[in-house]
């Protein structure tokens, strides 16, 4: 009896507030926009999806979002891997300090951390002042409101998501393995590619998915740091909904985005389930 309550209470909550909403989004994505409250009809058609695929703007935006997220993921990996490696290989006391410093930003408001970069990358911001003062440039360079700024913001915000799973798999790894490889005649770089990298792969996959998935739908970073031309899909959805008040189209945008994410999300869940089994 109590067992049933234990399962049923969170189950029902999630069915009502997590699963049911998706059914409604799907339903509304098939409706037509009308004036009124609520601003959609009861009709059913695939017009919104047809429109999404016919208007090049949407396809370009989806592709741009995927491209930006993928680039940000690779940048995070390039920076995060050596960092995670360094943390995993440092002495125990330093390790716990370094880890704490990776986790600390998690607890500070995401919005405020993105905001911090606005002050840095402003035309009259810290970086430009510094460059002017040193004399590298003689007039401010455009940093904020560019794709570069969006990348910086994405890497900055999602770096911890990359480092933590990488650290977990690197820390579990036996250092003797690398030494054994070197003992058997592998050069340092050979030993890295033959031993360290394959063993770290679960962490690499998890880290990449944890960065890639949320980065695709990111709204705040491109809004605050990106230029008007860096239109990403999260922004499009938001604007269709709030600015154009086209709820059915916004729903269709959401459905397509969700379909785009199904594969990475399922991959991530598979990986996490396996990881949980192996540690249990």
């Amino acid at each position: 009896m109590w067992k049933k309550v234990l399962i049923a209470a969170p189950y029902l909550w999630l069915l009502l507030f997590f699963l049911a909403p998706f059914a409604i989004v799907l339903k509304i994505s098939l409706a037509e926009p009308v004036f009124g409250q609520p601003p959609y009809s009861q009709a059913m058609s695939l017009d919104n999806f047809a429109f999404l695929f016919s208007d090049k703007l949407y396809a370009v935006t989806y592709l741009r979002s995927v491209f930006m997220a993928a680039c940000a993921t690779l940048l995070c990996l390039a920076l995060g891997f050596p960092m995670a490696y360094g943390i995993a290989r440092s002495s125990r006391a330093t390790r716990s300090l370094l880890l704490m410093l990776i986790i600390l930003p998690f607890w500070i408001s995401f919005l405020l951390r993105v905001y911090a970069w606005m002050g840095l990358m402003n035309n009259y911001g810290t970086i430009n002042s510094l460059l002017l003062w040193v004399g590298i440039v003689d007039q401010p360079i455009q940093l904020i409101y560019t794709d570069f700024a969006v990348f910086v913001g994405l890497v900055y915000s999602y770096l911890p998501f990359m480092i933590l799973p990488l650290y977990a798999s690197l820390e579990r790894m036996d250092l003797d393995l690398v030494e054994a490889a070197q003992d058997l005649g592998a050069s340092r770089s050979r030993a890295f590619w033959d031993v360290t990298w394959p063993l770290a792969r679960p962490g690499v996959i998890a880290g990449c998915l944890l960065v890639f998935i949320p980065a695709i739908g990111e709204y705040v970073i491109p809004y605050l740091l990106g230029g008007p031309e860096s239109l990403l899909i999260g922004r499009v959805l938001f604007d269709e909904f709030f600015v154009n008040r086209d709820w059915p189209l916004a729903s269709a945008v959401a459905i397509v985005l969700l379909l785009l994410l199904v594969v990475p999300i399922v991959l991530l869940q598979r990986y996490q389930a396996r990881d949980q089994e192996s540690t249990a």
Binding site: L14, F18, F22, G234, S251, L258, L261, I265, Q269
Partner: peptide, 21 residues
Amino acid sequence: GMITSPMVMPEVITGLSLLLL
């Protein structure tokens, strides 16, 4: 699946779907 999905779901989708609900 319902337990782990909200963690990786893009916020715009979660927000939109809940509002529509």
